[in-house]
Design a protein around this nucleic acid. Structure first.
Lengths: 250, 250
DNA sequence: GCTTGACTCTCACGTTACGGCAGGCCGCAG
DNA sequence: CTGCGGCCTGCCGTAACGTGAGAGTCAAGC
């Protein structure tokens, strides 16, 4: 009884029996042996191959392409591992871009800043770096009209609105007071405000850990849409807030 | 001419016109307006919705589920953003587990350590935490036989084999000499060996940055399969190597 | 030795999420 | 008014399986 049955392999690898049947049908993964009764028997190398298959599949490769990749005689195990490592890193980078975009959106909603359609699709557009840009340019005759075209107002729940804005306003006021009094951004007083700011976001909007919070701080300075909200109170306040947030995170 | 045509939206969002037609057909995303001639006109809210659709689609949700998610009247924009944030974080964590698994496999191949089938599927098995474990237990009557069942020998290219092992052996020898002489792991001598070790891996096996290198160092101590390779030379050598790698990374 | 329930086999049709045409209407530049 | 590109609605094709149907297989228990 060398090797494993379809059911065993399926349960083990987390796929269905049908999937293994399918892979056999299309020649992607045929068990190296069959019993007298015609039962599939999967041996060690078959499992190796299945793992590779699942790996590339998870990364969205079509099965036919996986077949050619795995049947390439010029590629050994090392080659595959390197490629997989690279593919994973790219995919993760992509998802982290999405995370950043979501965080921007969350913060935009929180602060009442509106994003243009273009901004909202920014991360999706990355798919075709230049191709896309010139296409857009060509089709809409300059993106300015498109960019400025419309800004929508975010919809808020009305009940908590006053409380939330009052709280947020108090935070900015406190920061401003410290800033105006010349209290350093890294002082306990300033970082205390930062911590309240973080708690405020976590309570009313979304779970805001220190890492995300620091990211927000950077955004308040780097992104003029957000910076404007603080800079109109006092010149340099955005940077002050960023610094106190950073100090609070340590 | 308020709104955008299918072609514009398609090019903009990075999907095909056919896809938009399809989404219209199944009621996932119907343009809020049509021209007199029956042309689809997508307005702002439609674009918002499309972005949500693409987001959930990228995370592998079936379109029907996306429909119900987006049509849920109890969920507002904030809810979606939070959910998306959470989903992304999970997916990234998953992929990072895969990265770790690939790195382990790369290192296993490099050091000639063999992994059991179970170990190779470790990361895939994570899908069904307990369910899977007991299933496996039930079906194979104790995993020990399965675990120990077979270890295969990794296949190497024969030509470079001698050179590579000689180099790797020299590294261990050098480390051992320093270790035996009582030279600190953080000393320039020890970290120099660590740097050569990193270069060795990068040259012969895979791109090994400092972060990965530190990860390997941890693995040499934490994972007994790797630890054994160093501990049999001298007691405590694995930890010494780990420390010198960590020191070298700073 | 025979039944029984779990497992397996091979068709074979159904489903999802589109891709890719065909045949015909719209709209504007020349 | 005539292209020519864009858009329309079918409609068929495809990938990667899901989901039985009907029948053979195998280890366990009576």
């Amino acid at each position: 009884m060398a090797g494993y049955s379809v059911g065993q392999v399926a349960a083990f690898a987390g796929v269905t029996v049908r999937t293994l049947h399918h892979y056999d049908e299309i020649g992607l993964l045929s068990p190296s042996e069959r019993t007298a009764a015609g039962y599939r028997r999967y041996a060690g190398p078959d499992l190796d191959r299945l793992q590779q298959v699942l790996f590339y599949r998870e990364l969205g490769f079509p099965l036919e392409e996986i077949t050619t990749i795995l049947d390439d005689p010029g590629a050994d195990a090392q080659t595959h591992l390197r490629r997989q490592h690279e593919l994973l890193r790219r995919r993760i980078a992509r998802l982290e871009a999405l995370v950043a975009s979501v965080e921007t959106a969350m913060e935009a909603a929180r602060m009442g800043v509106s994003l243009t359609p273009e901004e909202r699709y920014e991360v999706f557009g990355e798919f075709r770096p230049e191709d896309h840009a010139e296409e857009a340019e060509r089709r809409w005759g300059g993106s300015s009209a498109w960019t400025e075209s419309r800004r929508r107002t975010a919809s808020y729940s009305k009940a908590d609105w006053e409380r939330i804005t009052a709280e947020a306003g108090a935070l900015v006021t406190d920061w401003h007071a410290l800033f105006a009094a010349g209290v350093p951004a890294a002082s306990p007083e300033a970082t205390a405000v930062a911590e309240r700011h973080r708690a405020h976001i976590s309570r009313w909007f979304y779970e805001c850990g220190y890492e995300i919070h620091v990211g927000l701080g950077e955004m308040y300075v780097a992104d003029e849409r957000f910076a404007a909200n603080y800079e109109r109170v006092a010149d340099g306040l955005a940077a002050y807030i960023r610094d106190s947030i950073a100090a609070n995170a340590r």
